[in-house]
């Protein structure tokens, strides 16, 4: 009986490899797990975009004011343009405070972009050197973070969000962490 098992062994090895490949190859290697999920936000204070409205935002604003969303964007970022209407839709739902982190941008271009595309952000902060973004583990924009009432990062999405992602992931997670 044990001898028969030897014949099945190659098939079993093949099946195990097939499962590994099915999992490994269906993942997008450019999307990395975030090291900061369930960790507190880094301390920061961002000035507003030079010449723009508002007074920027800081880590203190993200604690005790309900769920917040930080959307990292720049005028030079093409996918940001694609997802912007969805960020606007999310902001209009008023389920979370949506902040815009303007990443390595020229203030004039950023303001023109916001004028053109609409400015859905409760506040925006300018990060010309990308240092705050690095503290957030940002490596490719757009990136979108959900931060709970206690200032803990609960979710991060890399790349432009799409309607499905908004409905099936972002909104439920915001709801889950809403006080």
């Amino acid at each position: 009986m044990a001898n028969r098992l030897v014949y099945i062994l190659p098939l079993m090895v093949f099946l195990i490899m097939a499962v590994y490949f099915a999992i490994g190859l269906s993942k997008d290697p450019s999307i990395l797990p975030s090291a900061l999920i369930n960790k507190p936000i880094p301390e920061f204070s961002l000035p507003p975009i030079d010449g723009g409205p508002g007074k920027g935002f800081s880590s203190a604003d993200l604690r005790g004011n309900g769920v917040s969303v930080i959307n990292v964007f720049a005028s030079w970022c093409v996918p940001c343009r694609v997802e912007h209407p969805l960020i606007a839709r999310l902001a209009a739902l008023k389920v979370a405070t949506v902040y815009g982190l303007n990443f390595k941008d020229k203030p004039k271009k950023a303001l023109k972009w916001l004028q053109e595309m609409g400015d859905p952000y409760a506040a925006h902060g300018s990060d010309p050197k990308g240092r705050v973004a690095i503290d957030f583990g940002v490596y490719g924009i757009p990136e979108t973070f959900i931060i709970d009432n206690d200032g803990i990062i609960r979710y991060k999405y890399v790349g432009p969000i799409n309607p499905g992602r908004l409905e099936k992931e972002i909104l439920p997670i915001i709801k889950k962490f809403s006080p």
Partner: peptide, 8 residues
């Protein structure tokens, strides 16, 4: 760097 970007 690891605390921001993970072991990856």
């Amino acid at each position: 760097v690891v605390s921001r970007y993970g072991d990856y």
